[in-house]
Design a protein around this nucleic acid. Sequence first.
DNA 1: GCGGTGATAGAT
DNA 2: TCTATCACCGCC
Length: 179
Amino acid sequence: MPRAFSERDPVEVARALLGQLLVHQHRGVLRVGRIVETEAYVGPQDLACHASKGRTARTEVMFGPAHHAYVFLVYGMHHCVNVVTGHGTAVLLRALEPLEGLAGRRTDGPGRLTAALGITLAHNATPLDEPPLFLAEGDLVRPRDIRRGPRIGVDYAGAWARKPLRFWLRDNRYVSATP
DNA sequence: GCGGTGATAGAT
DNA sequence: TCTATCACCGCC
């Protein structure tokens, strides 16, 4: 995918990423999943978005060029990967449909997704249009097959927690469980 | 439902 | 330096 893909409003990108492929190439091993669930984090004003802390060492990548990876560690053990859409915005990848190199691995949920593909903090700030970690063109998704609802795990964000910024493919078995 | 785990940000 | 907090997950 070209970098221009991610140089758009994060909500548009969150929808457009559904059906696209996330690929990780590591020491000759190829792992590929189809993106089936995303969440938009829409900028410094969004209290659920890490960029609401302003520009810090951690959030700086979100203010850099679009189409780069923002990877962070939560709860001391789980990595989460985002597609940076610039200006302090990003799209969290929450679930994949396994396509290649993922036999027997669960890819529903942001922590399981990164564990299955082998994504770590080493991938933070890397461009997503070249190996080892990149986005590739998948299939076209019909707008009617996209569902939306509140984001997961951000209850602390008040009214921002209730905004429908989570997107997923209707009836897809790999979408993570809804609380 | 509960707690592990370590990076981060802000306080001290 | 210390401490609270956390875009989760597996097991109870």
